[in-house]
Design a protein around this nucleic acid. Structure first.
Lengths: 314, 314
DNA sequence: TCATCGCCTGCTCATATGAGCAGGATCGCC
DNA sequence: GGCGATCCTGCTCATATGAGCAGGCGATGA
């Protein structure tokens, strides 16, 4: 296309999209046939001169979703738009809303849903509507008895999801990470705990997020890890955690000893489930999102536009 | 419209604009009739959920142009898009390009074109193509013999416009501002100078820019005014200058004594001409652009999107 | 309870747009 | 300069979209 056609296609686009003229009218104005105008418009679109954006907190990016499915082998993907987002909190909220929408629309409705806990999961629980499902039982898939004043959000999350879905919650009565391996093994052999974990293994679907490997982690906030612990993990290559287990950029466990002290479903168990829904948004989580998707930890990903682009770039 | 319809309209817009589905297909997917889909899309547009942008350096904003004509009484308006502009220079370039395009397309072709000088005018002269007109004579409308090393850009501007338009330039051989009123009157009574000014008065069209009242002014750079002089003018209410004459926000001369020492067409002469093309772009020129348009100093305005919005806001 | 109003729905018909094709101009290549 | 290949143009026809309208539905007030 030469420069004249390029300019004409811009003029045509202005008249078509901003002035709502018909291609025929544009043809008369620019002394072209209407077919030529149609072709100019098609070229303007194809060359990216025309940008159409859907500006709405609930808007999604279907082309990115398709690419994630096709190029990253996901069963499904939900990508929320970042257009007009002012803060990280807003992005988090949009993503949580989308995850809640996804759960609500999920068919067949899972009878048992395994959930992790954290800021993202809590927000999802808040965005679910009463009656989002009828009779969904929720089971925690990793340890979540908090050590400090934030105690209870893990439980509150699972309970809220269950109650709003007309079912009940089964909590995993255990810390996330234990100090000694022996204690962890003792807890896991407890009949109640073992039963919960067994139930968790049998869930129809799993919903979890991932944490970045930084000092803002809920594990630091909850007192399971110190900032120094996190620094060590990062040095060993950790990019973040999934259900309390820290992974490197290939999705491998960074510190097997630490992992052995972590209560809950293992990553391999998660990987082998047919419906694992990961909800991961925000710039700080790009590396861990990448690891999760590459190593097949989730079959469904709910994320934001920027993260999706990051995943597809590599 | 209730929330359900709002969400549906977003889903429909995604499928329509991002996935190129027909309204009928969308209807099947969302279990709606195609008419409902059409209405949802219309509402999404009307409520501003859909934003269509034309991304191109040469793109214009026809709705803003129309509003400037209708609401600000301009004969014509050219508004360049600011989408994707990185720097003030880029904006300046786009606007100069648009001014050059406007001149080239102008019908009837002016036989004599009066021009001012400055950075904007120089850039316009550079963007004009050889043969943009056949036989346009150019005449300077304000004094432009520079006092320092930048000497010659005023002349170069007029000459370039004339040469590329297949005509010749008539320069006004006088400084822009003289130190003493008597000198100014003496120069204006000189036969050559008087002849040039007479020719300038008879031009078919005028092309000029406006300067902001700040220390970056070409008058400071050229040595006609000191930064202190500018500060005084600003204190008296100056928002900028047109053909070397400083005006306040109502378009009135700020300092009549200074104005009397300024050589060239007066503002009232400019106001009474049928075709006065002002080219004004950039945030720093918003106040002076406002004054120029409000006081009827131009009949045609070439500007950028942000400036246009500023003009229409008030 | 019922009449009335106004909005919404799904239609018909007119118009706008896109797909595909045959002829012709243009370009490069010898 | 001649020749073929390629691209481009303007058409026909099929499809998609928008305007406008009649009927139905629910809300509202007597």
């Amino acid at each position: 296309m030469d420069e004249i056609d390029e300019l004409l296609s811009i003029r045509a686009a202005e008249l078509y999209y901003e002035e709502n003229k018909t291609q025929d009218e544009i043809g008369q104005a620019l002394r072209l046939t209407r077919w030529k105008v149609g072709r100019l418009l098609a070229q303007a679109k194809q060359r990216g001169f025309i940008r159409i954006e859907i500006l709405h907190p609930r808007a999604r990016r279907l082309p990115l979703e398709r690419r994630l499915r096709d190029e990253r082998g996901l069963t499904d993907a939900i990508v929320v738009s970042t257009a007009g987002v002012q803060s990280a909190e807003e992005l988090q909220e949009r993503t949580a809303q989308a995850a809640a929408d996804y759960l609500t629309a999920l068919r067949p409705v899972p009878r048992t849903l395994g959930v992790s806990w954290g800021r993202t999961l809590f927000e999802i629980s808040q965005h679910l509507r009463n009656g989002w499902a009828t009779g969904v039982n929720v089971v925690q898939i990793n340890g979540g008895v908090s050590l400090n004043r934030r105690a209870g959000t893990a439980a509150a999350t699972a309970v809220a999801i269950a109650q709003k879905g007309g079912g009940s919650a089964t909590l995993l009565p255990s810390p996330a990470i234990l100090e000694r391996l022996a204690t962890k093994e003792a807890i896991e052999s407890d009949r109640v705990v073992a039963g919960v974990i067994e139930l968790a293994r049998s869930a129809d679907a799993y919903l979890f997020s991932a944490g970045a490997a930084d000092h803002n982690s809920v594990h630091v906030e909850s007192g399971y890890l110190s900032t120094a612990d996190v620094d060590v993990l990062v040095q060993k290559g950790a990019v973040g955690d999934v259900v309390g287990r820290y992974i490197d950029s290939d999705g491998n466990i960074v510190d097997p000893a630490l992992d052995a002290r972590t209560v809950g479903l293992t990553l391999d168990e998660l990987r082998s489930t047919p419906l694992a829904i990961a909800v991961i948004a925000g710039t700080s989580k790009h590396p861990v999102a990448d690891a999760v998707v590459r190593s097949g930890l989730c079959s469904v990903l709910v994320t934001d536009e920027a993260t999706a682009l990051h995943l597809l770039d590599g």
